[in-house]
């Protein structure tokens, strides 16, 4: 029979998992790009990879302390945003889409190639960079502590705490700037950049600021993402960006809480769905399906979900029906 308890408990764990936090933060960065500024960044996976590799390589190769490793990652993503933005932010919106998707792939291929194996670990990736972060852990208890399905050891609680604090700080920051005149200019650019230019605003500079800011959020998300796992280049494929878009669209593209709620809903539902299908297959309820096929269903589901949301509820769960986040 199907173990419903395990399915629900696994799904509930996703609610506060560091992965959920990382996706929420990356989606928040994308909300700044896409939802508020109208920039089509399809390279968020690249920003996340820079965070993950920037942190891991600084720690492993250069033996940097945690704060310096974080700064290296953030610095790398600022440079990356400048490289992407300088040629494309003056051009039509779809050029940025093509360039960002290409640049993210270039990064992934550079991280995957055997040529730099000694630094990047090539396809194998990197691990063993967590010591510095774990040493900062104020929790000292033994074994697992928690309530309900959320039972974790000290390190697991520590990464959840840090991850979600970063998400909350980023959300508050975004909220502050979006209600300020800065946010007004940004939203104006989304509507019509020529009009904003005609009012004396340096549109190019604002777009660049937006690209850098959202990219830095992506980079921080990339760091949170690798705290509970290893850095593996295969994680930073284009489909990672698409997943983040799915989360953003689900929650509402031009909202602050949308990406966070979207990430929670997305991962809880996905975990529930995967858990259910996997166990149903194991129990022989779905004789036409293998375990491997059951694993692929989730991607099909995400793809269909993206299509349906964009067509039928473009404002997402939390978005305002009137303020659709799409540039014409």
């Amino acid at each position: 029979m199907i173990d419903w308890g395990a399915i629900f408990s696994n799904a509930a764990q996703e609610l506060i998992s560091p992965t959920t936090a990382a996706y929420a933060l990356a989606a928040l960065g994308l909300a700044i790009h896409f939802g508020y500024t109208g920039l089509l960044n399809f390279g968020q996976a690249g920003f996340m990879a820079l965070g993950a590799y920037g942190y891991a390589i600084s720690t492993l190769t250069f033996h940097f302390p945690v704060w310096a490793a974080v700064l290296v990652g953030v610095g790398a993503s600022v440079v990356f945003a400048l490289i992407l933005g300088i040629p494309t932010l003056r051009l039509r919106a779809d050029y940025l889409a093509i360039v960002t998707i290409a640049a993210a792939e270039i990064l992934r291929l550079l991280f995957t190639t055997n040529t730099f194996d000694s630094v990047t670990g090539s396809a194998t990736g990197l691990q063993g960079y967590k010591g510095g972060f774990a040493a900062l852990n104020p929790f000292t208890f033994e074994g697992t502590v928690g309530f309900g399905p959320w039972q974790y050891n000290a390190y697991d609680w520590w990464i959840r705490l840090v991850g979600w604090i970063v998400v909350i700080l980023a959300a508050v920051f975004t909220w502050l700037i979006m209600r300020a005149p800065w946010g007004r200019v940004i939203k104006g650019i989304r509507e019509d950049e020529d009009a904003v230019r005609a009012l004396g605003k340096n549109v190019y500079s604002y777009k660049m600021q937006s690209l850098i800011l959202g990219g830095v959020f992506g980079t921080l998300a990339g760091m949170i993402f690798v705290l509970p796992r290893a850095v593996v280049p295969a994680n930073y494929q284009t489909s990672l960006t698409f997943f983040i878009y799915a989360i953003l669209l689900l929650g509402g593209a031009a909202t602050i809480l949308g990406p966070i709620v979207g990430s929670m809903v997305f991962w809880v539902l996905l975990s529930f769905f995967s858990g259910f299908i996997a166990r149903a297959v194991a129990a022989g309820w779905l004789p036409f399906m293998s375990q491997v096929q059951a694993g692929q269903l989730r991607f099909i589901l995400v793809g269909v979900a993206i299509m349906l949301i964009v067509i039928f509820r473009p404002q997402g769960i939390l978005g305002n029906k009137k303020e659709l986040a799409f540039v014409k």
Binding site: R190, A198, L324
Partner: peptide
């Protein structure tokens, strides 16, 4: 300051 032939009011502001 200029305006445009096709109005550029920022619709969702």
């Amino acid at each position: 300051i200029r305006t445009f032939q096709l109005t550029k009011s920022l619709g969702l502001l």
